[in-house]
Design a protein around this nucleic acid. Structure first.
Length: 486
RNA sequence: GGCGGCAUAGCCAAGUGGCUAAGGCAGCGGUCUGCAAAACCGUUAUUCCCCGGUUCAAGUCCGGGUGCCGCCUCCA
């Protein structure tokens, strides 16, 4: 089975063959560092994290580059408002970004270059474009001439004439064509600047990605990714810059993730309907957010809500409960090499099938939703075996099942915690959300324990009911009563 | 106005023309339990927005509606 990836440019799923067997180069457009990251940024990060993890799981040597835009109008504005330097603002939000991503279990990209580290390369690229007649200087600015690049519009499926009919572009009389875009702009008073052949100025947004991708991955690389809002104009312009300069294909596969929505609208800064990652992580475990995001296919929109996260939380608890049960088997001192049991063969086949189905799902354009479905199937057959009074599956085989769950989980970035730690933290967090006192819950449990010992069932049930009314569910085991939040 | 996407059960969601339309959440019935919870078993879409068409066969392909969303300005 071969990996197939949906390529935005062809609008089709294509078989994936890297330019060099066993090696994959990925470039993903990162954030502009001027504020905290929101759930939309989390989705992009998690999606490409899983893509990277899966390619590595499949045996590829992946070089993953994700940039930071650290010079930009928004950063300058923010710096002005807060009376800080732009470097200070960028540095702060890059650090916050890294912290959020770390919590989400996003593996650090191989390289995380920043725009300002590559000014020389940008000046060089602009020079090349000028030499090739693809760009023109104008009052200290330099613009790209889209009409001079024949492929302009090939990624987003547009052409210049059609777009002009709709004409919703800002009028700028410095441009020869309204769709020409700035490569470099003269800096105004108070703005950061670098010396250039066109005077003191600063690079414009699209330029950095062309330079940094080439620097780390070469003229042509395998996968270029980002949110679907970057298709036009950002990625279209990157193609114009890079391919205009090198004459070579920039990226062989274009991969774009869908949006996170809130009440059916795109989550975005400008609409103000965003939730920051850190806000959400105060309410839910990072793995819950991750699970929520991966439960839908990466190209579909996902609707974000508290209810949706709560459902995701329930799903994640199901996984962790099974993992805990499996761990308890191992901890129970049961000999791993117990004699074969009747259903060992069946279980072994199921585990094998799980691995195969996982690969099959992921090979189909990274279908994490389907992969998760298979994971739940696995949980059910493991739970079935665990529930049997007379064990039909030997512990050693069950632990093979656990191994498979953890292995697949690691590709999706799940099950990174110890089950006990995860479940306790989840429980305590939910209790805190409801304003419940853990000490009080435990006091009532102790009282009920005494009542039960005395076979005072009525009092025991009263306590159960009282706690249930607050969302606290008691679970009586033979020797201990544990509790959970509904 | 131009370009593109989506519409599957109460909710979320997968579905690569052909076995009984994954899976999760929620609900209901049962097993287990002193009673519960968890877990397990069963159950919840004769049908995939509507109307036509292609085909032996369509949720899946084609055409036309309707509704929603996105990009075309910064945006993951």
């Amino acid at each position: 089975m071969t990996l197939r990836i949906y390529n935005t440019q062809s609008r089709k799923k294509e078989e994936f063959h890297p330019q060099e067997e066993g090696k994959v180069g990925i470039y993903v457009c990162g954030i502009t560092a001027y504020d905290f990251c929101h759930v939309g940024h989390a989705r992009s990060a998690v999606v490409f994290d899983v893509i990277t993890r899966y390619l590595r799981y499949s045996g590829s040597d992946v070089t993953y580059v994700k940039n930071f835009t650290d010079v930009d109008d928004k950063i300058i504005d923010k710096a002005g408002r807060e009376q800080k330097g732009i470097a200070e603002i960028a540095e702060l939000y890059i650090r916050e970004h890294d912290e959020d991503m770390g919590k989400l279990g996003v593996v650090r990209p191989t390289f995380t270059p920043r725009a300002t580290e590559h000014i020389d390369g940008m000046i060089h690229l602009v020079t090349t474009l000028l030499e090739k007649g693809l760009a023109y200087p104008m009052d200290g600015d330099v613009y790209y001439s889209v009409e001079r690049f024949p492929g302009y519009g090939k990624l987003s499926g547009r052409n210049i004439e059609e777009m002009q009919a709709g004409a919703r572009v800002d009028v700028n009389d410095k441009k020869r064509n309204p769709f020409d875009f700035a490569l470099w702009k003269a800096s105004k008073e108070g703005e950061p600047w670098w010396e250039s052949p066109w005077g003191r100025g600063r690079p414009w947004w699209h330029l950095e990605c062309s330079v940094m991708s080439q620097r780390y991955l070469g003229d042509t690389f395998d996968i270029h990714g980002g949110g679907e809002d970057l298709i036009f104009p950002h990625h279209e312009n990157e193609i114009a810059q890079s391919e205009g300069a090198t004459g070579k294909t920039l990226a062989r596969y274009w991969v774009h993730n869908g949006f996170v929505r809130v009440n059916n609208e795109k989550m975005s800064k400008s609409l103000g309907n965003f939730f920051t990652i850190r806000d959400i992580l105060e309410q839910f475990d990072p793995e819950v957010l991750r699970f929520f995001l991966l439960q839908s296919h990466y190209r579909s929109p996902v609707d974000f809500s508290d209810a949706a996260l709560s459902e995701a939380r329930q799903g994640m608890n199901r996984f962790y409960s099974t993992l805990k049960a499996l761990k308890d088997i191992a901890a129970g001192g049961t000999a791993i090499a117990a004699e074969p049991a009747a259903k060992d063969g069946e279980m072994t086949a199921q585990i094998q099938a799980l691995r195969e189905r996982f690969v099959e799902s992921m090979d189909d354009d990274f279908n994490t939703a389907r992969a998760i479905g298979h994971l739940f199937d696995a949980v059910r057959f493991i739970n079935t075996a665990l529930a049997e009074k007379k064990p039909g599956v030997s512990p050693g085989i069950l632990l093979e099942g656990k191994k498979a769950l953890l292995e697949i989980g690691s590709v999706l970035g799940f099950f990174l915690e110890e089950p006990d730690t995860y479940l306790r933290r989840d429980r305590d967090r939910e209790a805190a959300k409801r304003g419940l006192s853990i000490a009080e819950i435990e006091r009532l449990i102790a009282e009920r324990r005494a009542a039960r010992a005395a076979k005072a069932w009525q009092r025991a049930d009263e306590i159960r009911k009282e706690l249930a009314g607050q969302g606290v569910l008691l679970q009586d085991a033979s020797d201990i009563t544990t509790w959970a939040i509904a």
